[in-house]
């Protein structure tokens, strides 16, 4: 009897996550996912090796060469993508801009992931009053107009990289918390958890060994799906002048500088937006693929 029960249990747990070769095979088959991976990897490489790739110093100003159009429409051979209003090389600023976007995006997603995961695990596993209080906290966070609150907070505390990451994390952790809690609620009634409890496993051990591995899939999915949102929000805050302060180039900051020159110089407003769009597209495609492979039920995210 007991052996039979074990035999039934085992394949179920193995099926929870597809084996690795399958994941890579599905990546090769799904062309849009492949495109997403290529885009995201290229942007990461661009950000990491920015000093090697950028043709010029992104801060060097040459005021007599301001707002030069890109190479192909001007005929000059110096600035591949033209210059901004202070005569700085636009391509170099775009390449360096990827750094802040990715840095903020990855850290915000990582931070919220860890925090939301913990809250979700505790709320779902222990239930009762703890669960009730934590879920009301989630409701509270969800009931705030996020962008306004972020603006107010940054305006009061003062803009910096750390403040930006923290403020953006305020909102997104609740999404992990909700999903993880829901998963844990069903997991804790499963036989393998009951079994672990009956042989005297401590709460910490049960959570770490039996529950955690089973909720990692949704966490990875949410992280990848929200990476793009984070990059857009960071660009928006920088656009309003509440991001990482200048002269550090950020895509949102480039857009905000360029907006004034909309009527004369198309490249200063078009290119940073394209950079954001392509990067977010890459992140979203990877997110969609991970969801389809790991847990197709999470389609409303």
């Amino acid at each position: 009897m007991r052996e039979q029960a074990l035999a039934i249990q085992e394949p179920m747990e193995l099926e929870a996550l597809p084996e690795r070769p399958k994941i890579w095979a599905s990546l090769w088959k799904d062309k849009s996912a492949l495109l997403g991976c290529v885009i995201l990897l290229s942007v990461v490489v661009m950000a990491v090796f920015a000093p090697l790739l950028a043709p010029m110093d992104p801060q060097a100003q040459l005021l007599d060469r301001n707002l030069k159009p890109p190479m192909w429409s001007d005929g000059q051979q110096i600035y591949l993508l033209g210059t901004d209003h202070l005569g700085r090389d636009f391509l170099s600023r775009l390449i360096y801009g990827a750094r802040i976007s990715l840095l903020v995006g990855f850290f915000a997603v990582l931070l919220t992931g860890c925090f939301g995961l913990c809250v979700g695990l505790v709320a779902g596993y222990f239930g009762g009053k703890v669960d009730f209080l934590l879920m009301r906290l989630v409701d509270l966070v969800l009931s705030f107009p996020f962008i306004l609150l972020a603006l107010a907070t940054i305006a009061i505390v003062g803009p910096s990289l750390v403040v930006l990451i923290l403020v953006m994390s305020m909102r997104i952790w609740v999404i992990y918390a909700r999903v993880v809690r829901g998963e844990v609620l069903t997991l804790r009634e499963q036989e393998f958890v009951q079994a672990a409890r009956s042989i005297g496993g401590s709460h910490l051990r049960i959570i770490a060994r039996h529950i955690l591995p089973n909720v990692l899939a949704p966490v990875i999915i949410i992280a990848s799906l929200y990476l793009g949102r984070m990059i857009i929000i960071e660009a928006g805050l920088s656009f309003l002048g509440l991001g990482v302060p200048p002269p550090t180039p950020t895509w949102g900051g480039l857009l905000s500088d360029g907006k004034v020159h909309l009527y004369t110089s198309w490249w200063v407003v078009t290119l940073p937006g394209l950079a954001i769009t392509v990067t977010v597209l890459g992140a979203n495609l990877v997110g969609d693929w991970l969801r389809n492979v790991l847990d197709p039920r999470l389609k409303s995210l």
Partner: peptide
């Protein structure tokens, strides 16, 4: 729709201004 979810709305707004207004 995949593309629309990747476009920052405020940049799209600026592009609209450039195309329809300018």
């Amino acid at each position: 729709t995949v593309l629309m979810q990747a476009v920052p709305d405020f940049w799209l707004a600026i592009m609209f201004i450039m195309f329809f207004s300018v």
